[in-house]
Nucleic acid binder design. Sequence first.
DNA 1: TGCCGGTCATTGACAGTGTCAAGTCCGGGG
DNA 2: CCCCGGACTTGACACTGTCAATGACCGGCA
Lengths: 190, 190
Amino acid sequence: MTADLKERVLDASVQLIREAGLGGLSMREVARRAGVSHQAPYHHFTDKAAIVAALVERGFTLLAERMEAAERTGTAAQRLRRVGRTYVDFALEQPVYFRLMFRPELTDPERFPAAEAAGGRAFAVLERLVDEVTGPQADPGRKDAMVTMHWSLVHGLATLLLDGPLASELGPGVTRGRHVDDVLSLFLER
Amino acid sequence: MTADLKERVLDASVQLIREAGLGGLSMREVARRAGVSHQAPYHHFTDKAAIVAALVERGFTLLAERMEAAERTGTAAQRLRRVGRTYVDFALEQPVYFRLMFRPELTDPERFPAAEAAGGRAFAVLERLVDEVTGPQADPGRKDAMVTMHWSLVHGLATLLLDGPLASELGPGVTRGRHVDDVLSLFLER
DNA sequence: TGCCGGTCATTGACAGTGTCAAGTCCGGGG
DNA sequence: CCCCGGACTTGACACTGTCAATGACCGGCA
């Protein structure tokens, strides 16, 4: 009632997805929770897909802000490590956003260019940083491979912890945070 | 008409997901395509979730078979590389299966233990192989980190190519297969 | 032969969904 | 004052997943 209906709809959507999964996201239930009629949300979002796209944009913006903060101080190597850790932490702390962000079939870039742009902003941080740490490369293909390698490691770690088998079983007495640190150390200090 | 309805339902489901995404998977449309009444599939699957679970099991079995084939010949290092490449190839060739396999909220392991078991079979290959290549480790935590690192790299590469920004933009004149090889080389031959 | 249980599939119904099309209300500018 | 545009509501439609009851078919047994 207090805040903008647009915000309330988005918040209710996140909450609903958290409880019932993306499949449980219902336009009408969202409206119900926001205390309005089932058609009110359509005044702010043309579509159910538009709500999801707005969440994707929110998510990428959140991630980009965190990554940009992590790259502000320290040596290049320190910053690279911290940004990687930030990426994984974000996935684990905001699973709802993170999962939506990597379901591209939900957000057609033609219809929702803002979502894609926010994604580019986050990815740019990682790219810039890897460039800096690995130094200039003769072969541009090698540079690309370098970026992809770092990014894959971090992204894979995040998704395996979130939705892979690492979500449940993890050696006895090993916290997820500890495991993440171990893997990052192994990868970066070789 | 010819084959078992159970098989036809599964095939139609894959096809439908391929065309319209998981959200477009409809019990009734599947039945329509199989040429039966809207309730016929219920005789073979208790649920819509049961269909998805069956596809997940199929997918993991397919992947496990391919990985097991790839680990049969060659030196340990060769086999590790080939299994990694197989993992990525599978994701790119069978995106419908691969995506379902990593949406654990769709297949409750209590209800569908077979799906989880098939997953374990595939993961075991990678685990066994990393163990072999990296040799015995004093610290068991280090061994786990070793496995997770390799796995994350490969899984991240697969998902970024499939659903991340690497799906669209990739340096000019660089095929996906070439890029995968470059990244794997960089990672394995350090 | 005649019946019987079980498997497979059918038709019918119900609540819930996304979304189109109209209506209602209301505050602020001509 | 009027009226206009935005915010919201009510009503309807086709479609969905799933429960229930019904029917066809079949091999085996009396």
